[in-house]
Computed example of a mutant assay.
Amino acid sequence: MTANNSGLVAARDQALAVRALYEVLEERFNGKTWSLHELMIGFSNDVGYIGRLLLANDGTWGIDGDVDAELKHKLAESMWWLFVLADKLDIDLDEAFTTTMDTIRSGLEKTIERTAP
């Protein structure tokens, strides 16, 4: 965990604390916590809803409620899902994000340099 992404670390910690509360309720109501597949279905459902919210934002899909508020909520919730899934898969998302962005940025910078007029 790097100092550059301490916001990600704090967000992860908060996300996992919320997940722990959900797990208490899942155990009480279902006798078990959600599997990795169930978590992924929940995430996929929210991603699909973001697509509909983007259409609503463009005025091509009607929804009840405040589109901006819903988008903020679902985008934040999607980050929550990513932290939860990464935790279940034992992936350090902070490290993975930093490494991935460094690799992508380096490749883009080389391409821009190579294709400069």
Score class of each variant (00 low, 15 high):
T2A: 13
A3V: 11
A3K: 11
A3P: 08
A3C: 10
N4F: 10
N4Y: 09
N5D: 07
N5G: 06
N5Y: 06
N5S: 12
G7W: 11
G7E: 11
G7C: 10
L8M: 11
L8G: 01
L8H: 07
V9E: 08
V9H: 10
V9M: 06
V9D: 05
A10I: 04
A10Q: 09
D13W: 04
Q14Y: 08
Q14D: 06
Q14S: 13
Q14M: 07
A15N: 00
A17R: 09
V18H: 03
V18M: 08
V18A: 09
V18C: 03
R19A: 03
A20C: 06
L21I: 08
Y22V: 06
Y22L: 09
E23N: 10
V24G: 07
V24C: 06
R28A: 12
R28S: 11
F29N: 08
F29R: 08
N30C: 12
G31T: 02
T33Q: 03
S35P: 02
H37L: 11
H37K: 11
H37Q: 12
E38Q: 06
E38T: 04
L39H: 04
M40L: 06
I41M: 12
I41Q: 09
F43A: 00
D46V: 01
D46M: 02
D46P: 01
D46L: 01
V47R: 14
G48E: 00
Y49D: 03
Y49M: 05
I50A: 00
I50E: 00
G51C: 04
R52D: 00
L54H: 12
L54R: 13
L55V: 06
L55F: 09
A56L: 09
A56V: 13
A56C: 14
N57Y: 08
N57W: 10
D58N: 15
T60V: 15
W61I: 07
G62A: 14
G62T: 13
D64A: 15
D64L: 14
G65A: 15
D66I: 07
D66S: 12
V67H: 02
V67R: 00
V67K: 01
A69N: 14
A69V: 13
L71K: 01
L71H: 03
K72I: 15
K72E: 14
H73K: 14
K74A: 02
K74S: 04
L75N: 06
A76C: 11
E77I: 09
S78I: 02
M79C: 09
M79P: 02
W80P: 00
L82M: 15
L82D: 01
F83V: 02
V84N: 01
D87L: 01
D87F: 03
K88P: 00
D90A: 04
I91T: 03
D92P: 02
L93A: 02
A96D: 13
A96G: 07
T98D: 07
T99I: 13
T100F: 07
T100E: 09
M101F: 10
D102F: 12
D102L: 13
D102H: 13
T103N: 15
T103E: 15
T103W: 11
I104T: 13
S106F: 14
S106N: 14
G107Y: 14
L108E: 07
L108P: 03
L108C: 12
T111Q: 15
E113K: 14
E113D: 14
R114W: 12
T115D: 14
A116Q: 14
A116R: 14
A116G: 12
P117E: 05
P117D: 05
